[in-house]
């Protein structure tokens, strides 16, 4: 009896022929996999490209402080039509590529969703504020939407294997670390529930920072940093900017930081590490993580050591 039921169920499913994807705004139903997709965040672009799907449009423009495609994605995303920036995507450009689905960020595009919905059905995920698990789930959801569920599962399995490998490098006795993005005028802590924070926790490195007021990322001053006094500090910067943390390093307080005394201040590219957040980015991050010695709690060396002024 049970066997019959099990064999009938897929047939029933085929009869309805519907793809259902739960997201922050509700549930999206599709009769067939979406062929024309517009993405408004880099993690969605990364995910689609990893699945071998080229979106008909992506928000890769530079505007309002947006820095364009992260370097690790540049070669792969060549030829993807830009429909403006993430903060202000061009509605005309989106309409002109005739999407079947638009994938938006539930936080960044909150106020824009009614306008987007008039163009095509909108799926909204927590990308900017999502954790590593959230973003992995999105790989599956996006895979289902474009009819590549098997490939998505494969991607996640491969990723899981890589994570296990990386985990073997982690020193279980290492003290908690702190991760932050530094721009010329800000120092933004990424807590244990941010993408990068939760990825590092998954790999066995505890994060000192918890979310504040429900924010997984928040700004901190030099004083705040000294008060928390992390034993390992990981800063994400851009090579074409002079991050504020570089000027902090001239302050006598800086040398009192445990991480500075232990020589555990690491520096990575912020575009690659915090803006991609997809399966391709994860692969890139894991490789650099292992090479840098961060997981093993070795002193920062070579190109991954913080460049003091």
């Amino acid at each position: 009896m049970r066997k019959i039921l099990l064999s009938v169920l897929p047939v029933l499913g085929l009869g309805l022929a519907q793809i259902q994807v739960k997201h922050e705004l509700g549930t999206l139903s599709l009769n067939a996999p979406a062929k024309r997709v517009v993405v408004l965040e880099y993690s969605f672009l990364d995910t689609l490209l990893a699945l071998g799907v080229t979106p008909v449009g992506a928000a890769t423009g530079t505007q309002g402080g947006d820095r364009g495609l992260p370097p690790y994605l540049r070669a792969r995303a060549e030829g993807v039509t830009s429909i403006g920036s993430r903060a202000q995507p061009s509605l005309e450009a989106i309409l002109s590529v005739r999407p079947e689905v638009i994938i938006a960020d539930a936080f960044v595009h909150r106020d824009l969703i009614p306008q987007l919905q008039r163009i095509a059905p909108v799926v909204a995920f927590q990308s900017r504020r999502g954790s590593f698990d959230d973003l992995s789930q999105q790989v599956l959801d996006i895979g289902r939407m474009v009819g590549k569920e098997a490939q998505a599962r494969q991607l996640l399995e491969d990723q899981e294997r890589l994570l296990q490998k990386a985990r073997a490098f982690a020193n279980p006795k290492a003290p908690p670390l702190m991760t932050a993005v530094s721009t010329p005028n800000s120092f933004t802590v990424h807590s244990n529930e941010s993408f990068i924070g939760s990825l590092l926790e998954r790999l066995g490195r505890k994060n000192l920072a918890r979310p504040q007021n429900n924010q997984t990322q928040y700004e901190l001053s030099l004083e705040g940093l000294v008060a928390l006094n992390p034993a390992t500090l990981v800063v994400f910067t851009a090579p074409d900017e002079t991050p504020i943390v570089r000027s902090w390093a001239r302050n006598p307080l800086w040398t009192r930081l445990e991480a500075v005394r232990r020589g555990r201040v690491f520096e990575f590219d912020r575009d690659n590490w915090t803006r991609g957040r997809g399966p391709l980015a994860t692969r890139f991050i894991l490789a650099e993580l292992i090479n840098s010695g961060l997981l093993a709690d070795k002193p920062a060396g070579g190109s991954f050591a913080f460049k003091a002024p």
């Binding site: 830009s82 403006g84 995507p89 061009s90 450009a93």
Partner: peptide
Amino acid sequence: GRGLIPPIE
């Protein structure tokens, strides 16, 4: 604003 450097606004 729309026409100078589309699709940037």
